[in-house]
């Protein structure tokens, strides 16, 4: 270790005022923390398996293994039906890793340092969520790209398809706050995964992802009708292969707003309490 003097303070002005105002500072801090998450994602590409390989495997299994039985032989028709549904399921599952990562960060003490810095309490969480955009974009690209290799065709047009991608990413960003909250509440990152699976599995299978709602028993239909995944799938199906969109879209947007309104405050409060 050298004995070089560390130069004296070079911050000028009032050190109690964040540069450019509080809001600008919060945006800047969240972006800096989002970049941190992105660097971690790039360093560990295997962490992207759940948004790349896993959706592909589901697509293959359901199309070629069950597709013929479900539709009575028309696998292409089933692919057109299935892909929008699997996209929604993959978005919901893609958020699980976020809660696990945040839980691990807290256990390692990385967040203690952030909390000892003059940043808004929400910045580390918001930063991590923003960085998750990349994962949801990956899901969309992989599903549409690999799907088209398997024969999936967009039957509407470019704009509706882009709208479907945009809505998908937006839904992913809202839904993942559940995972963030669970990540703050449970002890280990393994428990985050377990808890989230208990939630995501019934939501994605108890929906119109794999079969038409009309084929289900009545009691199950009533669950399917309130399930947010159902309406997200309905919207994406309409936007990609045609059909009514408006009803499903409105309910999906309401769910997104509701998820944010409930789980952002819950997650922030749990984060604040976690010692």
């Amino acid at each position: 270790m050298t004995t070089l003097d560390v130069p004296v303070r070079n911050i000028v002005g009032d050190i109690d005022k964040p540069r450019g105002g509080a809001l600008a500072a919060q945006v800047r801090h969240s972006v800096a923390l989002a970049r941190r998450s992105l660097i971690k994602t790039i360093r560990t590409p295997e962490a992207l398996i759940d948004v790349t390989l896993q959706p592909i495997i589901f697509l293959l299994i359901f199309t070629y293994l069950f597709g013929g039985a479900i539709t009575g032989g028309d696998r292409h028709a089933y692919l057109q039906f299935l892909l929008p549904g699997l996209l929604a399921q993959s978005l919901a599952m893609g958020g699980i890793a976020l809660g696990q990562n945040l839980n691990a960060d807290i256990e390692k003490g990385v967040f203690d340092r952030f909390r000892s810095l003059p940043v808004a309490r929400s910045a580390p969480l918001v930063g991590a969520v923003v960085a998750d955009i990349v994962r949801y974009m990956t899901v969309c690209v992989v599903m549409l790209g690999f799907g088209s290799v398997m024969g999936f065709r967009v039957e509407t047009g470019l704009l509706p398809a882009l709208a479907a991608v945009g809505l998908s990413i937006g839904f992913g960003l809202c839904f993942c706050w559940i995972s963030v909250w669970v990540g703050m509440m449970v002890r280990t990152s393994g428990a985050v995964q377990g808890t989230m699976f208990l939630l995501v599995m019934p939501l994605s299978f108890g929906s119109n992802v794999f079969v038409e709602t009309s084929t289900l028993p009545g009691w199950l239909q009533s669950f399917v009708h309130v399930n947010p995944i159902t309406h997200l799938v309905g919207t994406i199906r309409g936007l990609l292969v045609g059909g009514p969109v408006q009803f499903h879209l409105l309910i999906t947007l309401a769910w997104m707003a509701g998820l944010l309104a409930v789980f952002v405050p819950l997650a922030l409060r749990a984060y604040g309490r976690r010692a």
Partner: peptide
Amino acid sequence: LIGQLLDLT
């Protein structure tokens, strides 16, 4: 990262 969170340019 810590410098940025401390509002350094």
